[in-house]
Design a protein around this nucleic acid. Structure first.
Length: 412
RNA sequence: GUGGACGUAGCUCAGCUGGUAGAGCUCCAGGUUGUGAUCCUGGCGGUCGCGGGUUCGAAUCCCGUCGUCCACCCCA
């Protein structure tokens, strides 16, 4: 395997042409959908002050506790490769005074993110997400629109086996009360819980809902769910989101145990899972984060957003590589024609055609073989006497063509 | 971070209980007084992931390490 002693670092990978083409299609499709919906592109740095993530994502989260690529720069600052996209965008929103713009500010992004996790299919240390954020409105309309856009993206791309799970975490007050109730419930049944869950009662009691441990599951069956404990406003908000999705024909399943691993989420949360994937089955997910901007030192600003995993979308799609056609390949029957061949190629490209010319000094046979290989529809063959032949690569028909008429002929 | 499986040419893989490396595909050239399927011939290409150990001798056994995959965990 190793032609070189160097390999891409653990959990990273090279994006070779076949995969790069699929990615380009995914990003193009996403951008078209987002732009039509009035979202604007943004891009933030690949790294940020560590504290942005500690405050934004939350110190008790797995991401911050053990998954960040953190290092000190030469000025002694603690820097972290971004593990997610929402906190940086909120930082940019504040830094550039976007709260003075008409609200909500609707943004989308795509790019690499970094988490120091144990790699497996659908989980990498450098991975790519595309996502969007609608900042500055607490209306359920924004929740529904965001969810609709992700549903549309997945449908447009043709991702099979997609299912939407929907939940609500409530507002901070309701959540706090609920968490105390849940912790009390867990403590009351501590002996039946798995060690893992028991150790996290204080730190992250919601995680108990996800446990596969039998004893824990028994306890959780009788545990209060947050959806049952929503206050009036949050319940109304959640009901409205559901109603809007119903009206738009979006299928979903309410999952009262849905949890998110980032602390900033409030109210609506959702997750699109794909049955085609293994353990890493979430292709995209997100939710409302009404307290994040305030947490970062800004004014109270409600917002919602989501991110989708590009690699997971590709896995779900099965990574079928599509070949690209060329309009023509310019071949020479005699080496003396190479200069003219390159010049002609340039002219044809200028005319808007996709054209290649031999760059490897191949024989005529080799050139036509190559023309076939790159799926050129025609070959233009420059003869030693200066005349040209136009060959149809599908039928094998070949006829002389005047130099000035090549571009027109190829456009047919 | 925990547990398990795996790691031979660019790709897909074969190589029994240790004897010192093969096939198909790809790529290049030729068979064709110049023209792409197929076919035929030849060629390029591997320190058998890496390091160490056992042995007269290891791709084959042992240990370590790196990597991939699966599950846990976590999430996109």
């Amino acid at each position: 395997m190793a032609a070189s002693k160097y390999q891409a670092p653990r959990g990273t990978f090279d994006i070779l042409p076949d995969a790069a083409r699929i990615r380009a299609r995914i990003e193009r499709t996403a951008a078209e959908i987002f732009v039509r919906a009035g979202y604007e592109p943004v891009s933030t740095p690949a790294f940020e002050d560590t504290e942005l993530f500690e405050r934004g994502v939350g110190r008790s989260t797995d991401i911050v506790r053990k998954e960040m690529f953190t290092f000190e720069d030469k000025g002694g600052r603690s820097i972290t490769l971004r593990p997610e996209g929402t906190a940086p965008i909120c930082r940019a929103y504040l830094e550039h005074g976007m709260h003075k713009l008409a609200q909500p500010v609707k943004l989308f992004y795509a790019g690499p993110f970094f988490r120091h996790e144990r790699p497996q299919a659908g989980r990498y240390r450098q991975f790519h997400q595309l996502g969007l954020e609608a900042i500055g409105t607490d209306s359920p309309l924004a929740d529904a629109e965001a969810i609709m856009l992700l549903a549309e993206l997945l449908a447009e791309l043709g991702v099979p086996g997609v299912q939407l799970r929907l939940g609500s975490l409530g507002s901070p007050d309701a959540r706090r009360d609920y968490l105390e109730e849940l912790k009390a419930h867990l403590r009351a049944h501590e002996a039946e819980l798995s060690k893992d869950v028991r150790e996290r009662i204080e730190l992250n009691p919601l995680r108990a809902f996800d446990s596969s441990d039998e004893g824990t599951r028994g306890v959780m069956e009788n545990a209060p769910t947050i959806v049952e404990r929503l206050n009036e406003e949050d319940a109304a908000h959640f009901a409205e989101v559901c109603s809007l999705l119903d009206a738009s024909g979006i299928d979903y399943e309410i999952d009262p145990t849905l949890v998110r691993g980032l602390d900033y989420y409030t109210r609506t949360i959702f997750s699109f899972v794909c049955s085609e994937l293994g353990a890493q089955s979430e292709v995209g997910g997100g939710g409302r984060y009404d307290g994040l901007i305030e947490q970062l030192g800004g004014p109270p600003t409600p917002a919602i957003g989501w991110a989708a995993g590009v690699e997971r979308i590709m896995l779900a799609l099965g990574e079928k590589a599509e070949a690209t056609d060329r309009d023509a390949f310019v071949a020479v029957a005699d080496d003396g024609q190479r200069q003219r061949a390159l010049a002609l190629t340039g002219e044809l490209r200028h005319a808007g055609l996709a054209v290649e010319v031999d760059l490897a000094g191949r024989s005529l046979k080799g050139q036509l073989k190559h023309a076939d290989r790159i799926r050129a529809r025609r070959a233009v063959i420059l003869e030693a006497d200066g005349t040209m032949q136009l060959r149809d690569m599908q039928t094998g028909d070949q006829h002389p063509v005047e130099p000035g008429a090549v571009a027109d002929e190829l456009s047919k």
